[in-house]
Design a protein around this nucleic acid. Sequence first.
DNA 1: CAACTTGGTTCCTGTTGGAAACCGAAGGAG
DNA 2: CTCCTTCGGTTTCCAACAGGAACCAAGTTG
Lengths: 137, 137
Amino acid sequence: MQDGTFSTLGHFGETAGGRGDVFNANCPTRRLLDRVGDKWSVLILSLLGDGERRFSALKREIGGVSQKMLSQTLRSLERDGLVTRTVAPTVPVTVVYAITPLGAELLAALSMMIDWAEARIDAVTEAQRRFDRRDRL
Amino acid sequence: MQDGTFSTLGHFGETAGGRGDVFNANCPTRRLLDRVGDKWSVLILSLLGDGERRFSALKREIGGVSQKMLSQTLRSLERDGLVTRTVAPTVPVTVVYAITPLGAELLAALSMMIDWAEARIDAVTEAQRRFDRRDRL
DNA sequence: CAACTTGGTTCCTGTTGGAAACCGAAGGAG
DNA sequence: CTCCTTCGGTTTCCAACAGGAACCAAGTTG
């Protein structure tokens, strides 16, 4: 199972040993996990999944992004082939970002996680409260 | 799953009960996104999904975690009700971490994403190469 | 009593993220 | 002609955070 980089998750069978490699730092799956794990990528991807947008529209719609992080994240998403960047030589330059088929695939894969988050956030919040209460004793 | 790609998003945008807007900074879903997004949580969760483990076993199996980050991440996972921490008063103290039902649920939700990562990492890597080549021109 | 084990915590340093200032092209105001 | 504005960034500066290494506590062995 050379390919079975993440057997633990897919089929809770084995791994534990070592060549499951997600647990080794330079595994490609782990690199992608890091990318997805980044604070803004998922937000941007989901906005673009809804339709293409310009830089300033993204900045407006995502609460709390700095321009630096937005352009930085967009550039790495573009590099990863998940979004496209199109510059129109209009009056003040216009840049349109859109999701690629690859990005849309990822977004679909992420949707499970996001659905879970929505459904279970209350359980998590309650667990936190319980933990904090117990902690103070 | 073309259009159904991210029905969740529409869901986000128009949540009835109080504007659970993911694109607004203090949305609970976003908090959870941040947690999942953290570098070690997914790795730890998947190891524990395979079976309970002790602190040092986790440290050994995950390449590149510092003890500090491991204990820190474990504590927040515990706080979120995703793992349990059990101390046995043995000779040198033994601490066993295990996944909770809630954590297992999240793990299942994450598996889609990880499967995607495995299947498509090559496409991403190739996109990166193309981008970098174009960039240098 | 020194050494070793497990499961951490503390200290120091290097990287990172955010806020805000600046940039550059072009059109408009004065 | 100069100033001001908009768009899409980049640069600068600083605070927060992650990682490595050393340290710690408790008990057991030698």
